[in-house]
Design a protein around this nucleic acid. Structure first.
Length: 720
DNA sequence: AAGGCAAATGTTTTT
DNA sequence: CATTTGCCTT
């Protein structure tokens, strides 16, 4: 049999992993070591050499993006048999769990049309539970309860099994959790963590079913294994049983989701539970220059308790790493823009440049600088498409068409756009629904039939129900794109957003149109499910990250978290400051600090040819000015690899050290803490200053008028 | 019931 | 600083 096409281009370690005997496998794959390629080739190997059919293979990833990529790479490798690939299960943990629950809803104890709650829906439901239980949300914040519930579910713990240890907090959280479970049960709703928990329980409760899948999946592959949480691991272990073989691929140094319940220890645990395990290390890096790699290694070395892995390359040293000390965040953005312009002038393509940052909030200033410089850019993350308000509203109408009992959807749109159904009316419906143990929709019907509502409310509600019926009637025999167009137009959502003032309304109208085209291009994976329902599932499960357009020539901006798995010839890693990166919230605890360091490692290893680090000595955070030292991570990089750049030309520093603020002030003969007189506001004391040139602003605390910002350009301040 | 204004509140992200 | 939330008014 000829397998040369599968192994020819591989290095020794990669080949070892691809051609391993039929057994359990752990592949420790460093950044840029060709991990996806190994996975894809391993699948091909199994099919060709071990004669497995695609039907017997299960490939699990964490993100939809990774799942898509794997499918694509497989399709390229088997350019003939895309059809054969269709019977192979490739998906995220959640996607696969969902598929199982749809297929076996009865055995799982779910209604056939169960709905998926996204985190927004979940929070709303929790708020309603608070009302029901009359819990004080000031004392026990909603978000904390959401965090608690998801955390427990990720650990596989149901409310009934939460131990309180006489701790009032845990007791309270447990009762909220229990009530939340009830509410989900009643409404036939399943949140993300529940998908996994349920399908795990499904197998424990239905041995025959479990056996069926165990027999079917001879081989299971798991990507990004370092990100698995407890319930995912348990799920995997049960499914694998004693007969399936499992290959997991991961990198303990790239585990950055610990705060979300991911357990790196699962890598150790795997070697014990799935023994004997064939371990392969992929340490040769094909992505970055030697300098970049050495910097990454130097940083990650400071973490204890690693599995131990050192990336190496036989490539060139490459350029040194630039480190720019910016004056403030404006200067940082300016420098980044200038730097990128130089790269572009030198012939780089915009889409090969990425600007990475720790938190989304940093993107704004960059965005403004890019607009000013007229550079094309693209920001990833932030609000996802299917989570936008207007989209969720439109989807709620569609959900009601599928299932009138969907209370979450009902509440969302009963008065959206406003049609005269206020809180009072909805509250009455809620009470009725609770008393009769029925849905809001049924309660609404009942209330109208028995005439228990005031005339105005009845009129409005009748209008709403008629609208739904009319939409339902027109939905028959139409494509989902047509149906959603009708919904958006006839519900009044379109008019409502068109009337919205400003740019916001326009964006929302465009998004609604985008939804219609998303419907048009929707391709269901399974044929036997009604298209609309399948589409709604997709919307819940796949947040619709705007797929990166390869053709789009724009600089890529994103958080370090979303950069995982990507690579760029030029990378700028900005905001390299203590308190920002590592983040203030994480600096205290050693474990969380190590996770931040791994995040830094991920960031550095995204760069192929050139890496630039920047930091601002002075940055406005949450409206307050703060002075932060250079990040410890930057200091962990050997100075031989770094080319330090200070601002020159812009400001000439006085001989003795002065803070940037003080030098600005000097230009106007003003200083912090100085007393001044203003021709209108009288006397006061200078609190803060900012800006340069004609834009200097000074904050003064006036004895008579309080604190005000003064533009020196317009109003002179006289020193006292 | 709806719009307007003041106060609170700020990680990271996927599903 | 900027956005979101909730209260209060019409």
């Amino acid at each position: 049999m000829d397998v040369s096409d599968l192994i020819d281009q591989l290095n020794d370690a990669q080949r070892e992993a691809v051609c391993a005997p039929f057994s359990n496998q752990l592949v420790l794959a460093g950044a840029g070591s060709g991990k996806t390629r190994v996975l894809v080739h391993r699948i091909a190997w199994l099919m060709r050499v071990e004669q497995l059919s695609p039907h017997q293979i299960l490939a699990v990833t964490f993100t939809n993006k990774a799942a898509h990529e794997m499918r694509e790479r497989l399709a390229t490798l088997f350019d003939h048999g895309a059809g054969a690939l269709r019977s192979m299960w490739v998906g995220t943990f959640h996607g696969i769990a969902h598929r199982l629950l749809r297929a076996h809803w009865q055995e799982a104890g779910l209604p056939q049309n169960f709905q998926i709650l996204d985190s927004d829906d979940q929070l709303r439901l929790i708020k309603r539970v608070y009302q029901e239980l009359q819990v004080d949300d000031a004392r026990w914040p909603h978000r904390q309860a959401q965090w608690f519930i998801n955390g427990k579910k990720d650990d596989g713990v149901r409310a009934a099994y939460v131990k309180d240890d006489f701790d009032p907090f845990t007791k309270m959280m447990r009762s909220i959790y229990a009530a939340y479970e009830d509410a989900c049960e009643r409404g036939g709703m399943v949140d993300f963590a529940e998908l996994l928990l349920r399908s795990h329980e499904l197998w424990l409760k239905q041995p025959t079913l479990l056996e069926h899948y165990q027999r079917r999946f001879r081989y299971i592959l798991v990507d990004e294994f370092q990100d698995t949480n407890s319930i995912q691991y348990a799920w995997l272990r049960v499914l694998a049983g004693k007969t399936s073989h499992v290959v997991v691929v991961g990198d303990d140094d790239q585990s950055i989701y610990g705060w979300r319940g991911a357990k790196i220890e699962n890598i150790h645990q795997f070697q014990r539970d799935f023994s004997p395990v064939c371990v392969t290390r992929l340490e040769q890096n094909y992505r970055s220059t030697s300098n970049i790699l050495n910097a990454a290694n130097a940083v990650i070395e400071n973490n204890g308790d690693r599995l131990g892995k050192t990336l190496w390359t036989d490539g060139v040293d490459g350029e040194p790493i630039d480190l720019y000390a910016a004056f403030n965040e404006q200067d940082e953005a300016r420098y980044i823009v200038d730097q990128i312009k130089k790269w572009l002038d030198a012939g780089s393509v915009a889409s090969e440049i990425a600007v990475l940052y720790r938190s989304n909030a940093q993107s704004r200033i960059l965005e403004e600088a890019f607009i000013r410089a007229d550079l094309p850019y693209r920001i990833y993350g932030g609000q996802r498409f299917y989570e936008r308000l207007e989209i969720k509203n439109a989807l709620a109408y569609l959900r009601l068409l599928v299932n009138r009992q969907d209370d979450a959807a009902f509440e969302r749109v009963v008065n959206t756009p406003p049609r005269g159904i206020g809180n009072k009316t909805v509250e009455t419906l809620r009470l009725l629904a609770r008393d009769q143990g029925c849905s809001l929709f049924d309660a609404c019907r009942g209330a109208l039939a028995n005439n228990v509502l005031p005339k105005r409310a009845s009129g409005a509600l009748t209008g709403f129900l008629d609208l739904l019926d009319a939409l339902d009637d027109s939905a028959h025999d139409r494509s989902i794109a047509e149906v959603s167009r009708l919904v958006i137009e006839n519900s009044g959502l379109l008019d409502y957003h068109q009337q919205e003032k400003g740019e916001r309304g326009q964006v929302r109208v465009e998004n609604l149109q985008e939804l219609i085209s998303a419907c048009r291009s929707f391709e269901p994976e399974e044929e036997d499910r009604p298209a609309l329902e399948a589409f709604l599932d997709r919307a819940a499960l796949d947040a619709g990250d705007a797929q990166a357009d390869d053709y789009e020539q724009a600089v890529q901006m994103m958080t370090l978290h979303s950069a995982k798995g990507l690579e760029f010839p030029h990378v700028v890693l900005c905001g390299m400051e203590e308190n920002l990166f590592p983040h203030r919230m994480s600096a205290e605890e050693p474990g969380r600090l190590e996770e931040e360091r791994r995040l830094c490692y991920v960031g550095i290893t995204r760069a192929m040819e050139k890496l630039v680090l920047t930091y601002a000595e002075n940055r406005r955070m949450h409206g307050k000015e703060s002075f932060n030292a250079l990040s410890r991570f930057a200091r962990e990089i050997p100075s031989a690899l770094i080319n330090e750049i200070r601002m020159n030309a812009v400001v000439t520093r006085p001989a003795q050290f002065q803070s940037p603020r003080a030098s600005k002030a000097d230009a106007h003969g003003l200083n912090l803490g100085q007393s001044v007189r203003h021709h209108v506001f009288g006397e006061g004391v200078i609190l803060q200053m900012e800006g340069r040139g004609t834009n200097v602003r000074v904050q003064v605390n006036f004895a008579a008028e309080g604190i005000k910002w003064i533009m020196l350009q317009y109003a002179a301040l006289e020193p006292l």
